[in-house]
């Protein structure tokens, strides 16, 4: 990703908008008693579009802002989201994304990773109450929601950051050889 001042401003706006939307909307609506967490999906999408460095920095920024706004111990969310963003970036650097299914699947997997990570950080900081097994259902549902939300998030972000993206060679479908008069 070629980060010009204009692209940097867009990235900052994306991070702020994502955090505000998460805290004011997604966290407050529930489907099947679970709310969606779009922040890992946003970080993973940025990682997939911009590489591991962009992913890690985006993860740190998103986590830092969330912790600030929720007055939670700073660094906890950042630590987890850095990992998610970096892994997404690594994936992009090592493999080609040829199918439109890949970003949602990566978002789903890394959202599950992030949810497990949030749990691990919380356990590290100390959980003073019993933990329900329903938390597993919650994590799985969040990952499934991430799969569906990743489509608009990834393709929307790709559109928004298109000028900064390094062009990937287009995969053109080879035409079937034709015989005169037949297709």
């Amino acid at each position: 990703m070629i980060v010009t001042p204009k692209i940097f401003a867009r990235l900052v706006a994306i991070v702020i908008l994502a955090v505000l939307l998460q805290l004011s909307f997604f966290s407050r609506v529930e489907l099947l008693h679970t709310s969606a967490d779009v922040l890992p999906a946003v970080v993973v999408s940025l990682g997939l579009l911009g590489g591991s460095l962009t992913g890690a920095v985006a993860g740190f920024s998103v986590g830092f802002l969330v912790d600030c706004l929720l007055v939670a111990p700073l660094g906890g969310s950042s630590l987890v989201l850095i990992g998610a963003g970096y892994l997404a970036g690594l994936f992009r650097e090592r493999f080609d994304i040829h199918s439109a299914l890949v970003p949602p699947l990566v978002c789903m997997g890394l959202t599950l990773f992030a949810e497990l990570g949030f749990g691990a950080v919380q356990v590290m900081l100390g959980v003073d109450a019993p933990v329900s097994v329903l938390i597993v259902r919650d994590m799985l549902l969040k990952s499934i929601y991430a799969f569906f939300l990743a489509w608009p998030i990834y393709f929307g972000l790709r559109r928004l950051l298109r000028p900064a993206l390094v062009e990937e060679p287009k995969v053109t479908r080879r035409r079937q050889p034709t015989v005169l008069g037949r297709t």
């Binding site: 706004l69 929720l70 939670a72 949030f118 919380q122």
Partner: peptide
């Protein structure tokens, strides 16, 4: 009025 809510189930806080 509640204006924000934590995204994870590990913490339950609202602003």
């Amino acid at each position: 009025r509640v204006i924000a809510r934590s995204p994870t189930v590990w913490t339950s806080t609202v602003a």
